[in-house]
């Protein structure tokens, strides 16, 4: 099942979502972010999946977020299911969703520094050490 892809801008994003909602796209299924670090300008791309149950169709909206401010309007007032997804995107990538009711960290602890899924955030891999293993010079 392939979905129709719509590329749009931040300014028209919310209008487009509203029109999708009125076109019987009942569900916002998924919202995620792709970090095109040093590959594309601007850097962050928000990808939102919509599902129309009555028409059995899918649509994908892709928006590039401006590097300054990293902000995009929230769609929680149209689709309440976007709430957790936008919080996740804020937590993992640091995208600001304007007028979100409760934009706080969701997966990481509240006092965490940085946004882990960004490409320039290290994976935090610790070199494996075996206890009591002889030291190799």
């Amino acid at each position: 099942m392939s979905s129709e892809i719509i590329n749009t801008s931040v300014e028209e994003y919310k209008k487009l979502v509203e029109s999708l909602h009125s076109e019987n796209y009942e569900m916002m299924v998924d919202l995620t972010v792709v970090d095109w670090f040093r590959k594309k300008e601007p850097r962050f791309e928000v990808v939102v999946q919509f599902l129309s149950i009555s028409k059995n169709q899918r649509k994908t909206i892709k928006v590039f977020v401006d590097d300054e401010g990293l902000s995009i309007p929230s769609i929680t007032d149209i689709y309440p299911s976007a709430n957790f997804y936008e919080r996740e995107a804020f937590d993992m990538f640091g995208i600001n969703f304007l007028e979100h009711p409760d934009l706080t960290r969701i997966l990481m602890p509240d006092d965490w520094n940085g946004h882990p899924l960004r490409k320039n955030y290290g994976s935090g891999r610790i070199p494996v050490q075996f206890k009591n293993a002889p030291k190799v010079e």
Partner: peptide
């Protein structure tokens, strides 16, 4: 026991 296959920022190793 060791962090297993998830050697990353989120888990206690």
């Amino acid at each position: 026991s060791t962090g297993g296959m998830f050697n990353n920022y989120a888990l206690v190793q």
